[in-house]
Write a protein that binds this DNA or RNA. Structure first.
Length: 486
DNA sequence: ATGTAC
């Protein structure tokens, strides 16, 4: 048997790119890491492997807890963690979703090409920076109003449609059509609502960004045709989440689990795995609050897309419709969801947790919108601001291997603290501009250092593993033109 | 990720 020695833990090779931590001690199932040996080298010395093993201690976890190819250590669960718990006898874990509930990515298409924007990058990046609020703290696209927050939490993208910020096609091209019907605004604390009220339509900070990109490669012509993507086309990527509102929801429920289920918490190897038993009142409340925060995040991305459309219409002196600025798809990176999966030949209702992982449903699955049902859902995976991104399609094997999931990014190589020691913001910014003609404009220099291309793994390697495994297949690759961030 | 603290 081939093994990989990782600082005290031994991974057993199941097949190419599939490594197993065998079941031992309190593990309910084995854990699996999906990675090449090159990617394993990046995580062998940190807490990633301990964390994914810890996840298997949670009650009702099914088949395997999984770490995606871009995985790295996180809070309780690793980032890049996928775990499915039985919806009746299992549990639901805020730590398995993450603080930034429905952090996610959408791609907006255009009919422009790189030629149309070459030489005008700075004009465009300045206009986008002016139109889209960035950075920590408050300030959104729409004025704060408590009734608006309530409606957004309840209705998600349907609110945006009613208010004239969306067209019906935008809803069709969101996971869950941009609305989680299980949302329960009454389960969201007033404090969370207050934090969200003046952040409706704001990018935030950290790894969140808005990037204009050009399509540089098409790998699967038939799928790219279905998605409306071709070489040299200009597209826009929007990456952000639920801001302070989602963060507050996560904090509130972690605290409540500590207060209300202390014995259960004590039985787990890591307190940060905090989970509420399925069927408990607290589990239902968290699920309702999380779904509401998910709705909020969709509206957040929608309003940023709305601003983007207006900016392009202004800069190119036409309408966004004439520029073909349709939403390709909006994917969530941090969510849990009740889904039906086949486990050992039987259909089961599961809470699938994807924390830093993307749903990657293949052709035929009913949740995939009709426009993409014959080819599989689009999966949008951002790399770093110097590397560009990928569009994949949900792979035929994803349901068997990962509960229909794949990676969500390149994955960090180092902490933000270390990144700031290692990189200088001005050097990074001028390097990108002079070497790659990538124009970056940020609210804070610290963010540029924290998000320097060198702090990320090789996104090409992450995608290679996803494609080889058949969980997410390469469709197209993009390269940055200009980027705004917090 | 985040008004970076219980």
């Amino acid at each position: 048997m081939t093994t990989f020695d990782a600082d005290g833990r031994t991974l057993e090779r199941v097949r190419e790119h599939v490594w197993e931590l065998p079941q031992e001690d309190g593990m309910n199932v084995p854990a699996r890491v999906l990675a090449s040996e090159e990617l394993l080298e990046h995580i062998k010395d940190d807490d990633t492997l301990d964390q994914i093993a810890n996840v298997t201690h949670l009650p009702g976890v099914v088949t395997n807890a999984l770490c995606m190819p871009d995985g790295h250590q996180g809070y309780g669960f690793p980032v890049g963690g996928v775990a499915a718990m039985d919806a009746e006898n299992g549990c639901i874990s805020p730590g398995g979703v993450g603080f930034d509930i429905n952090c996610g990515v959408r791609m907006v298409k255009t009919t422009l090409t790189y030629e149309d924007v070459a030489g005008r990058e700075e004009e465009l990046v300045d206009a986008l920076f002016d139109a889209v609020p960035t950075g920590l703290g408050g300030g959104g696209v729409v004025d704060s109003s408590h009734s608006a927050v309530e409606e957004i939490l309840e209705d998600g993208m349907e609110w945006a449609l009613r208010e004239g910020y969306a067209v019906p096609d935008d809803l069709e091209h969101c996971e869950d059509e941009g609305r989680r019907p299980d949302a329960d605004p009454s389960a969201v604390s007033q404090k969370a609502k207050d934090r969200g009220a003046n952040q409706i339509g704001s990018l935030g900070s950290g790894n969140h960004f808005l990037e204009v990109q050009r399509v540089t490669d098409v790998f699967r012509d038939d799928v790219a045709d279905s998605y409306g993507l071709e070489e040299d086309q200009l597209v826009v990527l929007i990456h952000c989440g639920s801001r302070g509102l989602g963060h507050q929801v996560c904090s509130d429920y972690l605290r409540r689990i500590e207060d209300e289920h202390p014995d259960f918490l004590d039985s787990l190897p890591d307190k940060n795995l905090a989970a509420a038993p399925a069927g408990s009142a607290l589990a239902d409340e968290y699920y309702g609050a999380m779904c509401a925060a998910i709705n909020f995040a969709w509206v957040n991305r929608q309003l940023i897309m709305h601003q983007t459309r207006e900016v392009f219409a202004d800069v190119f002196d036409t309408s966004w419709e004439a520029l073909g600025m349709e939403l390709l798809y909006d994917v969530a990176h941090n969510i849990a969801k009740k889904e039906t999966h086949t486990v050992d030949g039987a259909e089961r209702e599961l809470y699938v947790h994807r924390k830093g992982a993307t749903r990657a449903f293949p052709a035929g699955r009913e949740e995939v919108p009709p426009a993409y049902r014959d080819v599989g859902q689009p999966v949008i995976i951002p790399g770093s601001m110097g590397a560009g991104s990928y569009v994949l399609r949900g792979g035929a094997d994803s349901l068997d291997v990962t509960f229909g999931s794949t990676a969500h990014g390149a994955g960090r190589l180092m902490s933000r603290t270390r990144a700031k020691q290692q990189f200088d913001a001005d050097d990074v910014q001028t390097g990108l501009e002079e070497h790659d003609r990538i124009y970056v404009k940020a609210q804070s220099g610290e963010t540029i250092a924290e998000e320097a291309p060198g702090v990320y793994k090789d996104v090409d390697e992450v995608i290679r593993v996803s494609d080889d495994l058949g969980i997410g297949d390469k469709v197209a690759r993009t390269f940055p033109v200009c980027n705004i961030k917090g």
